[in-house]
């Protein structure tokens, strides 16, 4: 091994090897998959309210903007968006199905996540559909966790997505957050101020609400009907609204 050329050619070959296996082959095999109609109506006797849908669909307007904020704030360093086939994941996400390639067709880039310091969010749109809950949580995640005040979450707050506004004499803004008691505003804002989400906060929540992988695809069927009990988010909502 004293010839540069030998090393060069050898490395080129080995490099092309892993490139073909991990980049080219997946791209050729699944890279061009298209959205498809999910299989419910043909596969199972159609149930009430069980309509077919072309899946996935590109996220529209607000949710698409929200995705950019999710990316900008690096939410994916603490939250994954991938349901593994392990049964425990089905419990955490309340969705008995694993994620597949097709779930991410319109996500450029898809933020699969690197860590689970917080829960997986692949199905958060179904688990927690309440907009006010999300807004309050983004504004002050530390004020409550699991619905209990005083439970400190490690999620950072995002106050820059909100404005403090003086409450007008004719009444507060309809979009102001309904804050639970456990959220304590800074001193100068405690009297006569309300917290109003910016359009960025609304977009981010629209994105979160658009996250649900509850479709029945050929390669990823749902194993059991969606869990009806929504323990986590119910308790959380109660905590947030009171």
């Amino acid at each position: 091994m004293n010839h540069g050329t030998l090393i060069f050619l050898g490395l080129l070959l080995t490099f092309l090897g892993s490139w073909s296996g991990m980049v080219l082959a997946p791209q050729v095999q699944i890279g061009r998959q298209q959205p498809d109609v999910q299989l419910q109506p043909l596969n199972r006797p159609p149930a009430e309210g069980d309509v077919g849908e072309i899946y996935p669909q590109a996220r529209a307007g607000l949710a698409a903007q929200g995705r950019e904020i999710y990316q900008r704030e690096g939410c994916y360093y603490c939250h994954s968006q991938q349901i593994s086939p392990h049964p425990a994941d089905a419990r955490w996400t309340q969705l008995n199905r694993f994620s597949v390639h097709r779930d991410y067709l319109f996500d450029q880039p898809a933020m699969f996540g690197v860590q689970r310091l917080g829960p997986d969010l692949s199905n958060i749109g179904l688990r927690q559909p309440d907009e006010n809950w999300h807004l309050v949580h983004l504004f002050a995640p530390n004020a409550f966790m699991d619905g209990k005040a005083g439970n400190k979450s490690t999620m950072p707050p995002y106050p820059h997505l909100f404005d403090y506004r003086k409450i007008m004499p004719q009444g507060g803004s309809t979009s102001a957050l309904k804050l639970p008691e456990s959220v304590i505003l800074p001193k100068q804002y405690q009297d006569g101020y309300e917290v109003v989400p910016t359009s960025e906060a609304r977009a981010l929540v629209a994105y979160l609400k658009s996250l649900h992988q509850d479709v029945n695809l050929f390669e990823a069927p749902m194993y059991a009907p969606k869990a009806k009990t929504n323990v986590v988010s119910q308790t959380a909502t109660n905590g947030a609204a009171k």
Partner: peptide
């Protein structure tokens, strides 16, 4: 990933390949 932009989970495979390489 940034120029040609492969779609879907292929991104994960390419990203994993890059990190491992």
């Amino acid at each position: 990933l940034l120029g040609q932009t492969v779609r879907g989970a292929v991104q994960l495979s390419v990203n994993g390949w890059f990190i491992n390489s």
